[in-house]
Design a protein around this nucleic acid. Structure first.
Lengths: 193, 193
DNA sequence: ATCATATATATGTAATAGCATATAGGTAGG
DNA sequence: CCTACCTATATGCTATTACATATATATGAT
């Protein structure tokens, strides 16, 4: 549903090939919506079917030919419609929480490793969000001649960073409390907040 | 992938029907992994195929017959294996961030509405997480005779609450800064409704 | 009487996602 | 010369998710 709309949004900046779109996702969208090259191409076919986009074949010498996609009127309308449609999905599907849920099956050390691995992974991602992503985002805004959109692009990144920091905070706190949770000494104290 | 493993985890507490499992998801798992009744049944067929679970048909009078599923040795092993396997997916797919990303297309008021609706929605969810969910979680732990797992169940809930609070914080801050982001002086505003 | 809700399982269809792999010429570096 | 990577598109297959709907009996409420 939304991959198609993100593509509509990018095509607003001008005609692009599937290859270009994939690059754009990697540079400035991947931090909140990761996707695959193959999904982008299939989305493009679908969107062409729907009449949201059209393409012109461009022959190149020395390089493979490419299809340059651009928005149709219907595509522009669909983008505007979607931008004003409340999105649902507060749901998250995070498998590591499932592991935590059944944490009684794991030893204290295994649980600690689970949380510490996750913490390390988040720290690596945060490092990238704070250094590389802002750069590639701004570079892409330049390439698109869309300086007025930079604040919004950075805002989604700011959200991502805020969330990662919040996760780190929770992990730090939980790791500190872990021994009392796994009951290194005394169990059975159910709590209701 | 993980829905099946969450079912394995629940069956650890004893034999259950698809109907029971669905109830259990609603009571204590939905806050971090939402699913559908139809998905649970199809997962059960798949898991039976894989040899992770088996069932006994139980005839009831007055009520529909049911299949009581229980873990096999292979199922137990698979659960233990999965619990110790690092889970990837730091990715999130949140459509509202896509709307924010292309926020230059929206008016200040529309953007504000987008963020405020989301804030209201999160507040409602938080309210449920803080009142109903702990109760149904503890009630289910009782029904499963698994008091030692309660701390872990509440831990995943604590994570959910922490995340929602972090989101609220970010939304509050961003709503305050919104005017300076959208540039209230408004230079060129192309509009097509 | 009728209507909603609870118990219980099952299927149909479509959308979305994930992952691998095929093709094929061009360029840059060792 | 060989290897690796860049440009560029495409398909196969599977898994997962979503949403709707069908069936059948029992109980409690209006």
């Amino acid at each position: 549903m939304s991959l198609q709309h993100l593509i509509l949004g990018l095509l607003k900046y001008g005609e692009m090939s599937g290859y270009d779109l994939n690059k754009a996702f990697q540079a400035s969208i991947q931090h909140f919506w990761d996707t695959e090259q193959s999904l982008i191409y299939r989305a493009l076919y679908k969107m062409t079917d729907l009449g949201w986009i059209e393409y012109e074949q461009q022959t190149q010498d020395g390089l493979p030919n490419k299809k340059l996609y651009h928005l149709t009127g219907a595509g522009r309308e669909e983008l505007q419609r979607w931008l004003r449609t409340p999105q649902s999905t507060l749901s998250f599907h995070e498998a590591w929480l499932g592991q935590l849920f059944f944490g009684a099956e794991l030893s204290n050390a295994e649980l600690r490793a689970l949380l510490e691995d996750r913490r390390a992974s988040i720290r690596r991602t945060l490092e990238i969000y704070e250094t590389e992503v802002p750069q590639s985002t701004v570079a892409y805004a330049d390439a698109f001649h869309a300086p007025e959109d930079v604040p919004y692009w950075l805002l989604t990144l700011d959200y991502g960073i805020h969330r990662l920091q919040s996760d780190l905070q929770w992990l730090d706190r939980t790791l500190q409390q872990l021994d009392s949770i796994t009951g290194t000494e005394a169990p059975s104290t159910p709590e209701t907040t």
